[in-house]
Amino acid sequence: MTFEPPIHWNDYEDIAMKLHERFGDEFTEGKIYRIRFTELHKWVMEIPNFSGTSEQSNEGHLEMIQSSWVYEWRDSHKK
Rank of each mutant, 00 (worst) to 15 (best):
L62I: 04
E59I: 06
Y33F: 07
T53V: 05
P48W: 02
Q56L: 04
E63R: 13
A16E: 00
Q66H: 03
I47C: 08
E4C: 07
I15Y: 00
T28E: 13
Y33I: 06
E72G: 09
R36A: 14
R22D: 07
E72T: 15
H41E: 15
T53I: 08
L19P: 00
E59T: 09
E26T: 06
E26I: 03
E63K: 09
S54Y: 10
L40M: 12
E26P: 01
S57C: 15
L19H: 00
G24L: 12
P48Q: 07
V44L: 01
Y12E: 00
E29I: 08
I47A: 11
V70S: 11
T53G: 11
E59F: 04
R34Q: 12
G30E: 15
N49Y: 06
P5E: 14
Q56P: 01
L40R: 00
K31C: 03
E4A: 14
I65H: 02
S76Y: 01
H20Y: 10
P48S: 03
W73F: 15
V70M: 05
T28L: 12
E46K: 12
M64Y: 03
T38C: 02
P48Y: 04
T2L: 13
N10T: 10
I47K: 09
Y71R: 14
Y33K: 05
E55I: 14
P5Q: 06
M64T: 10
I32Y: 01
M45E: 07
M1I: 09
P6A: 14
P6G: 15
F27M: 14
E4L: 08
R36D: 15
H8K: 12
D11V: 01
E55Y: 09
I32V: 14
I35G: 02
G60T: 03
K78L: 11
G52D: 03
T2F: 02
K31H: 05
E26M: 10
E55S: 14
H61A: 12
Y33G: 02
S51Y: 08
D75E: 10
Y71G: 07
R34E: 12
K78Q: 15
M17K: 12
P6C: 07
H77I: 04
E59C: 05
D14H: 13
K42M: 10
H41Q: 14
F3I: 10
K42S: 12
N58L: 04
R74W: 06
G24F: 01
S57Q: 15
D11F: 09
F27L: 15
S67Y: 08
G30L: 05
L40A: 01
F37W: 05
I65W: 00
E59G: 04
D11S: 08
W43L: 08
S51Q: 09
Y12I: 02
I7S: 01
Y12A: 00
I65E: 00
K79N: 06
F27T: 04
T38Y: 02
L62F: 11
